[in-house]
Every structure is written in structure tokens, then in C-alpha cells.
Amino acid sequence: MNEFEWVVFFLFIQLIHFLGTWKLYISAGERPWKAIIPIYNAIIFLKILHRPKWWVLLLFLPVINLMIFMVLWVDTVKHFGKTSPIDGVIAILTLGFFIYTINYQKSPKYLVDKSMIKRSAFNEWIGSIIFAVIAATFVHNYFFQPYIIPTGSLEKSLLIGDFLFVSKFHYGARVPSTTLAFPMVHDTLPIIKSRSYLKKPQLPYMRFPK
């Protein structure tokens, strides 16, 4: 995808967000136009969901943002009255489009107080796992990654099967080249031995810090 296509894709995502949440903004005491302004809408929606504003940064980190989206989908249905575990599962399986059914209710009910949201042991357990995966993926993608030496090309210093950690931060962490990948694996899924990522859409080659 070129830059123009990425801009179109980004604006399309904003439109999807607006169409699926504008009444939720109203129920939460916000103006509906805030749902269409890029980035600002994310800040406001995070406030509605009682999440920290700095999470906006996570929405722009490939792979990690997909997991954050799942957390936000579940948070959204909870904050608007759908508090059972199955509702959260449906929100994820429908890629967030379940939220549309809430948005287009006659009058969506916003749970202002976070304590009003019913919490189950299952939800807490799943939430803990998701956040652990997010944290581990962030470290894995941008700071250091474990490797096992696969060949004998470095035999004078490293042997086949040697296990080591490689710092990505020191020479610049590479932003994942694809936005869709299985977290915490290197190119290939274990056991089934298939590719752990999709080739499209592709991101430009970039490292930071350079």
C-alpha cells in the first residue's frame, strides 16, 4: 500500500468508528461530532471507557494495536450494559461490529461509574492474559527478542541450538512490516509450522530510534 492508500484506509476506519459509536458519545455526555475527528476521537473514547489517554500511542503500534482494539471492543460493550462474558466474546468475534447493535438502540445506556460494571472471574482472567500478551509483545517487538542459532555459520563463536537474547533497541527496533501477525513468535507458528503473519497490508521499512 502506498501513502495515499494508507490515508484512505485510515479515514475509512474513522468513518466506521463514527457510524458505530456516535450515539454512544451522546449517551456518555459528549458531542457526536467528536466521534469523527481522527485521534481526538480516540482520546475522548478512551476517557469514556475510563482508560488512560496515552493508550492512543498503542493504537499506532502494529500488532499491538490489534490487541488493544480487542480490549476496547470488550470495554465498550461493558460500559453500555453488555456485561456478560459472552457479550465480550461476540464483540471480538464480530471485530467490534457488535457495538453497532448497541449504538443503534433507541437510547444506549452508559454506565458512568466503573463500579457499576459487573465483573466475573472469567473476565478478570481473560483481561489479565491479554494485558500480559500485550506487554510481552511490546518488549518482543521493540526491545529484545530471544533467538536460537539455527545453523553452523557462526560455529567459532556460537553453536547450533545456542539460545540468546538480541537487543533490538540498540540498533533500532524495526516496526513490523505487516499489521496482521501472531504475537510473540518469529515468522513461523509453532507446531503447525505455517507463516505467522499476513503479507498484506504491508508497512514501509522503518526503524526507531534510527
Rank of each mutant, 00 (worst) to 15 (best):
F131D: 01
P146Y: 05
S120D: 10
W55T: 02
N41F: 03
M70R: 00
K34L: 15
D162G: 09
I102L: 14
F182P: 03
S120R: 08
I191W: 13
I160W: 09
R119Y: 06
K109N: 14
G172K: 10
Y100W: 03
T21H: 07
A35H: 03
L158M: 13
W22A: 04
T179H: 11
K118T: 09
E5S: 07
H79S: 09
L180Q: 01
K53C: 08
Y171S: 08
L66D: 02
P150A: 15
F12R: 12
S27K: 08
I43S: 01
A121E: 05
Y147W: 14
P209E: 12
A173H: 07
L189D: 03
N123W: 09
V71Y: 13
S177E: 15
W125V: 04
L46F: 13
L111I: 01
P85L: 05
L203C: 12
L180V: 13
A132F: 10
F143P: 05
N141D: 13
F69A: 11
S157E: 04
P176G: 10
F98R: 12
P183F: 02
I68A: 01
T137L: 02
F97N: 11
H170M: 14
W54L: 15
E155M: 03
L203G: 00
Y197H: 12
L189K: 06
R31N: 14
F9D: 15
N65A: 07
G96R: 00
V7E: 14
F45K: 02
L46V: 03
V89W: 11
A121Y: 06
F144W: 11
N141I: 06
H170E: 08
N2D: 14
M1V: 07
K34C: 05
L24K: 01
W125H: 10
W55Y: 15
A136S: 09
I16V: 13
M116L: 12
I48D: 02
Q202G: 01
V133L: 11
G29E: 06
Q105Y: 01
T101N: 14
F98H: 12
L95E: 00
P209Y: 13
V89N: 04
F10P: 08
T137Y: 05
K114M: 02
